Amino acid sequence: MSVTTDLSIPSEEFLLGTALLTDTDVYVELERVVPASRQVLPFFWAIGTEFEAFERDVQSNPNVKNLVSLDRVKNRVLYRVEWSKAVESLIYGIAEVGATILEAQGNDQWRFRLRFNDHSALSEFQEYCIEHDIDFHLDRVTTETDTVRNDFGLTAEQRETLVLAVEQGYFDVPRGVTLGELADEIGVTQQSVSERVRRGAGSVLESVLLEASTREERSG
Rank of each mutant, 00 (worst) to 15 (best):
Y128A: 09
D184R: 13
L15C: 15
V204R: 11
R32Q: 12
G93Q: 06
V87Q: 08
P35C: 12
V97M: 07
G220W: 14
R56M: 10
P62N: 05
F51G: 05
G48R: 10
V68T: 10
G169H: 04
F116E: 01
V148F: 15
F171D: 04
F14S: 09
E124L: 09
R76G: 04
T147F: 15
G17M: 07
V73D: 10
A104I: 02
R199H: 14
K85D: 13
A46H: 01
I47H: 06
T178I: 03
R159M: 01
L41P: 12
F116Q: 04
D184N: 13
V148S: 12
R149I: 09
S2M: 05
E82I: 08
H137Q: 13
R198N: 15
R196W: 11
E195N: 06
A86E: 04
R215P: 06
E127W: 00
W45V: 07
G220D: 13
F112R: 03
S120L: 09
N107F: 00
Q126A: 11
G98L: 01
E96R: 09
V163M: 00
S203F: 05
V28S: 03
V193D: 02
S89N: 02
V173S: 07
H132W: 04
Y92Q: 14
V204I: 14
V28I: 12
V73W: 08
L15I: 14
W83H: 12
Q158I: 06
S69M: 12
S89A: 08
E50M: 12
D184S: 08
C129F: 00
S203E: 12
A165G: 06
F43Y: 15
E96W: 05
L209D: 10
V64N: 00
Q126V: 03
S219T: 06
G202C: 13
H119C: 13
Q109T: 14
T178F: 00
V34E: 14
G220K: 13
S89E: 03
D108L: 01
E181T: 09
N150H: 10
T4W: 03
R111G: 11
L41M: 15
R159I: 00
L114Q: 07
V97P: 02
L179G: 13
R215Y: 09
A121N: 01
E103W: 02
E96G: 10
L90H: 04
K65M: 02
V166L: 13
T100F: 02
R196C: 14
I130T: 03
S219F: 10
R175F: 11
M1W: 09
K85H: 05
K74I: 12
V3C: 00
D151M: 10
Q168T: 09
P42F: 13
T4N: 05
G48Q: 13
G176D: 01
E31T: 13
E50H: 15
A53T: 15
